[in-house]
């Protein structure tokens, strides 16, 4: 997959010029707990680690270990109770809800286990959605969407609705939607969890290429050791605490 000069050279697109060695994600003493029925359940306890620009990491661990919670915190869809959480240089824990929404739109691409596409919109419209929050004109949006769908191999399916696509194809549409605003960070929560082995391999290969060729920083939560092998490093969460495995 070639990185398109169109996607890179758009003046409207966010330009990510992280200096080498600067972490994209900087976490110190991060803690999070949930309140359930009057009980306080600690999920993450004093987590500290960095994710460098261009890294592809897999977060693994048993159910309830806090990996999805950690991913949600990094993606700015949940807030920590304490600790420092900087993403792309921004202390996102200090942002208001509306600032956080703008920040997510510009900095994070989401890939969900169940794709989370809008069933009433075509593949084209789904991919275009995040661009509606940018000042891009309709023609510019169209060019970008066509390019993104070409990159995931679905240029010929852009007028199809999600229900007319296979699971693997839907996840590819979701990936196109995740990269359409050229975010620095892609977060994927069990992106292959709902797919057969062949489709899962396609998706993993696509994520690897996005990381290798477009330089995207990817954080992937997975239960699947095979999927985790695609990452540069695997971090295991066990009862809210982190350990690192490199391969």
């Amino acid at each position: 997959m070639q990185r398109s000069p169109d996607l890179d050279n758009h003046s409207e697109s966010p330009v990510h010029t992280e200096p080498p060695g600067e972490p994209v994600v900087h976490i110190r003493q991060l803690s999070k707990c949930y309140h359930r029925g009057g009980q306080i359940i600690p999920v993450l306890t004093n987590i500290s680690f960095d994710i460098m620009h261009g890294e592809f990491i897999a977060l693994m661990g048993p159910s309830g270990s806090g990996k999805s919670t950690l991913l949600n915190l990094i993606a700015g869809i949940d807030k920590p109770d304490s600790g420092l959480l900087k993403v792309n240089g921004t202390d996102i824990a200090a942002l208001s809800e509306s600032e956080l929404a703008d920040w997510r739109a510009a900095n994070v691409g989401f890939i969900f286990q169940f794709y989370n596409l809008m069933p009433v919109l075509t593949a084209f419209d789904n991919v275009e959605l995040p661009l509606l929050l940018t000042p891009l004109a309709r023609d510019q949006r169209r060019r970008r969407v066509e390019l993104a769908l070409s990159m995931v191999g679905l240029r010929d399916r852009m007028e199809h609705y999600p229900s007319e696509l296979s699971g693997g194809q839907q996840q590819r549409v979701a990936i196109a939607r995740a990269i359409i605003t050229d975010p620095a960070l892609l977060v994927a929560d069990e992106p292959t969890g709902d797919l057969d082995r062949s489709s899962a391999n396609d998706i993993l290969a696509m994520l690897e290429r996005l990381n290798r060729e477009l330089g995207k920083t990817i954080i992937m939560v997975t239960h699947d050791p095979h999927a985790a092998q695609s990452a540069h490093s695997i971090r295991h969460l066990e009862k809210g605490e982190l350990e690192l495995k490199k391969h």
Partner: peptide, 13 residues
Amino acid sequence: IREYATLKALGFG
């Protein structure tokens, strides 16, 4: 609700 949450995650207010 899940669709609304997805839209919110994408940055829609």
